[in-house]
Amino acid sequence: MFDYLANPTRFRAITAVIFPVAVAVTVAALLYGLYLAFFASPADYQQGETVRIMYIHVPAAWMALLAYLAMAVAAIFYLVWRHPLADIGARAMAVPGASFALITLLTGSFWGRPMWGTWWVWDARLTSMLILFFLYLGYIALADGFERPERGSKPASLLLVVGVINLPIIKFSVDWWNTLHQGSSVLRFGGPSIDPAMLLPLLVMALAMLGWFISVSILRMNTLLAQRRLNVLEIREQSPQRGKV
């Protein structure tokens, strides 16, 4: 099955189908999510209206982690089975993934301000997200830190594998550091135990973000494919004596 996707033209055919569906899902889920988030869900008895920030903060955190894991899987495909498309996939997902991490951090600080009077609170989850954001920046900087763009693919993929192995270690060490310094985490972000009326907007917003992520990633992959084709054409022009290979 893996080789099936490897062929760019077949890939373009598949994405030509998936792309519009993803965009449609994104728009629909976004509208419905906004409606649910602002009109059809109750204010939290404790945090009042600010719970509505959670509807963007929590899905973004989920997506930031999901995107990084997806990139790591693509990196493994690239390193083990030498799939050129997997590398292009990882590169395409990097910026959307990093933007989810950034959104989580910023909405987290807007959440912290009214609740705890500070723009940034060293909560375990926010700190882990900050480090995840650094890992994203490290990947992006390494992926295009080489003279010839394709030279950066393998080291950057290796960094993703190292990063994904270190994620649980970082998560655990930050939680360990947090519990020892601050006692149990102050920010209750809800979870399965929260009011079902709040769970639905959360899931719908998550679906909207997932749709957006897939759409933008496909768009960026096609751009990278076109870029690579352009580079090959330019190389061929600069060395005419090699003839048409």
Partner: peptide, 8 residues
């Protein structure tokens, strides 16, 4: 806070 976080 709500509108600025959604806006951001």
């Amino acid at each position: 806070y709500i509108w600025s976080s959604w806006g951001v």
